[in-house]
């Protein structure tokens, strides 16, 4: 446990070395942008993730042909090597 104690104290020291305060936020703004560019994926949020939500309009959709679609997915998965796992 004493080894853990040393490690824990060192961990706290490295966090404090970041010099973060509530006022400064997690990071300075330009540092944040830099970070997002290399590590984070940011997308146009409001159009994503079903965020658009409700509307009060009807939808025109034709009666689906129940049999037509079930056989095999036909999309970009076919482009992937090993995307469709062959039997055997």
């Amino acid at each position: 446990m004493s080894n853990s104690k040393i490690l824990a104290t060192a961990a706290i020291t490295s966090v404090l070395a970041l010099g973060l305060t509530a006022a400064s936020g997690v990071m300075a703004a330009d540092e944040k942008v830099e970070m997002e560019k290399c590590a984070g994926i940011v997308k146009a949020e409001m159009n994503d993730c079903g965020a658009n939500g409700h509307a009060c309009a009807g939808m025109a959709k034709t009666d689906g042909d129940a049999k037509e679609w079930v056989k095999l997915p036909k999309g970009t998965c076919e482009k992937l090597v090993g995307g469709v796992v062959l039997e055997g």
């Binding site: 009807g58 939808m59 025109a60 999309g75």
Partner: peptide, 27 residues
């Protein structure tokens, strides 16, 4: 069809990559 259309569109907006992977017809 309207109810299914509303919910299908919603699912397609939640799962846009799956929609492309399996193709819109299948989705």
């Amino acid at each position: 069809n309207s109810v299914h259309g509303i919910l299908w569109q919603y699912l397609a907006s939640l799962y846009p990559v799956c929609n492309q992977l399996v193709g819109e017809k299948f989705f």
